[in-house]
Amino acid sequence: MTTTLLLMLGASLQAGEPGTIIKSSELKSKPFADASSSGTVEASTRIDIISRQGAWMQVKPAKGSSGWVRMLNVRTDAASQAADSGIDKLGKLYKTGSSGSAVTTGVKGLSAEELQQAHPNQAELQKMNNYRSNNNDARQFAQQGRLSNQHIDYLP
């Protein structure tokens, strides 16, 4: 029951985010370059973003059926109000002592003013040092996550 609720919540956060296609894109049946194509979406087409998978977004144009396009060919729309974003609401659930107000002029903790007035906190710095990982720990962690490293040159 709880799991189902969480899954539904997770799905609803992703579903229906509005966006725009920024360059003509092939609409693929699956999130792979060699998947079959069901047509083309032209630049400036308004779409709803249904989900994301790696370099792909599953989108639904206002007219026509859904499919997968390259993520960099899509730009999400800025929410007209902060509260529009479901993810934002989730953030507020976690936020302790939040007034819940959607738009604020600054959020406590890391505003410009607070950075300016900050006094060094050596105790927290020490705590941060204590949480450090080490090379063996990190390698074990990578193995557990099935992460294998590879040589790749920096982009020019």
């Binding site: 994301r52 790696g54 007209s80």
Partner: peptide, 23 residues
């Protein structure tokens, strides 16, 4: 060993946030 689009996906999320949001 991570998918290279992690950062790009975050940028898409950030693009969704209203710039007027204090956060």
């Amino acid at each position: 060993g991570y998918h290279p689009y992690g950062l790009i996906s975050v940028l898409q999320t950030l693009n969704r946030i209203n710039p007027q949001d204090g956060a």
